[in-house]
Simulated scan of single mutants.
Amino acid sequence: MISVVTVTWNAENFISDTIVSVCKQKNRNFEFLLIDGASKDNTVNRVKSLLHEGNFPKENIVIVSERDKGMVDAMNKGVSRSKGDYVLFLNGGDSFYDENVIDKLEETINKVGADVIYGRTMMIFYEGRGIYNENEEYGDPIMPFIHQSVIVKRNLLLKHPFDLSYKILGDRELFYWLRINKYTFHYEPYIVSIYDAREGGSENNPYLIAIEGDRILGLDKKTFYWLRKLRWRCTKAPIQFIKNNAPRKWLNWYFLRKRKNIEWVEKY
Rank of each mutant, 00 (worst) to 15 (best):
M1Y: 05
M1V: 07
V5S: 13
N10W: 04
E12S: 14
I15D: 05
S16Q: 02
I19P: 11
V20L: 10
V20Y: 09
S21T: 00
C23R: 05
Q25L: 07
Q25P: 07
D36Y: 02
S39E: 03
D41W: 05
N42A: 10
S49C: 08
L51W: 08
E53V: 02
G54N: 08
G54W: 06
F56D: 00
F56N: 03
V62R: 14
V64A: 15
S65P: 02
E66D: 04
G70E: 04
G78C: 09
R81W: 11
S82K: 05
S82W: 09
F89L: 09
D98S: 13
N100C: 11
I102P: 05
D103S: 15
L105F: 03
G113Q: 07
Y118A: 09
Y118I: 02
T121L: 05
I124Y: 14
I124W: 10
G128E: 00
G130S: 06
G130Y: 00
Y132M: 05
E134A: 15
N135W: 05
E136F: 10
Y138A: 10
Y138M: 06
P141K: 15
M143V: 03
P144V: 02
F145M: 10
I146L: 14
V150Q: 00
I151R: 03
N155S: 10
N155Q: 01
N155C: 10
K159C: 09
H160Q: 01
P161V: 00
P161L: 11
F162P: 07
S165Q: 00
S165Y: 09
Y166D: 01
K167L: 03
I168H: 14
G170I: 08
E173K: 15
L174F: 10
Y176G: 00
L178N: 02
R179I: 08
N181R: 15
Y187V: 04
Y187D: 12
Y190E: 03
I191Y: 10
I191H: 12
V192E: 03
A197Y: 03
A197L: 04
G201D: 08
N204F: 14
N205D: 07
A210K: 08
R215Y: 07
I216R: 13
L219F: 13
K222W: 06
K222L: 11
K222H: 15
F224W: 05
Y225T: 07
Y225Q: 08
W226M: 06
R228M: 05
R231N: 13
R231I: 06
C234E: 00
T235R: 12
K236A: 13
A237K: 15
A237V: 04
A237C: 11
A237P: 02
P238M: 07
I242K: 14
I242P: 13
R248E: 03
R248M: 09
W250Y: 15
W250D: 02
Y254H: 07
Y254D: 01
K258Q: 09
N261Y: 15
N261M: 05
N261T: 00
W264V: 13
V265G: 13
Y268T: 10
Y268H: 08
